[in-house]
Amino acid sequence: MKSGKILLGLISGAAAGAVLGLLYAPNKGTDTRKAISQKGDDYLKGANKGFNDFTNSLNHKVEALKSKTKANLASSKSDEKINKAKAEMHNMAS
């Protein structure tokens, strides 16, 4: 019986809060929805930029590792120097 009263109180409080929020809202609903949508788009763009930066950094590290491996396995000194230079370029980019 006690949990039913608590649940009823929570639902009543949520409904009262929603009604008061609509009555005292400073902006129109369309403006509020646009603002929420814009904020969501901004967060999504920031997340995409962070993900792209991470993948670019990871790609440079993989390429540097591949170049270092090729340099270690190179049959000639010139191939070794070329691959070491490539590895250094990738290390600087990441």
Rank of each mutant, 00 (worst) to 15 (best):
K5D: 06
A71L: 04
D41V: 02
N27K: 12
G4M: 11
L65T: 02
N59F: 13
G46M: 04
K34E: 13
L20K: 02
K61L: 14
V62H: 10
K49G: 02
G13I: 02
L58E: 11
D41A: 15
R33C: 09
A47W: 06
K2W: 07
F54H: 12
R33Q: 12
G13H: 03
I6E: 15
A18P: 04
L8H: 09
G21H: 02
A47G: 00
N52T: 12
G46F: 01
N27R: 10
T30Q: 15
K66C: 05
K49M: 03
V19H: 01
K39M: 09
R33G: 05
K66L: 15
G40P: 05
S12Q: 03
L58K: 15
L44K: 15
N59G: 06
K68T: 11
S67C: 09
S67N: 13
D53N: 13
G9W: 15
G17K: 01
G50Y: 01
A14Q: 03
K61C: 11
H60S: 15
S3Y: 05
F51Q: 08
A15I: 12
G50E: 13
T32V: 10
D41Y: 07
E63G: 00
G13L: 05
N72G: 02
A74N: 03
H60T: 13
G46N: 09
L65R: 11
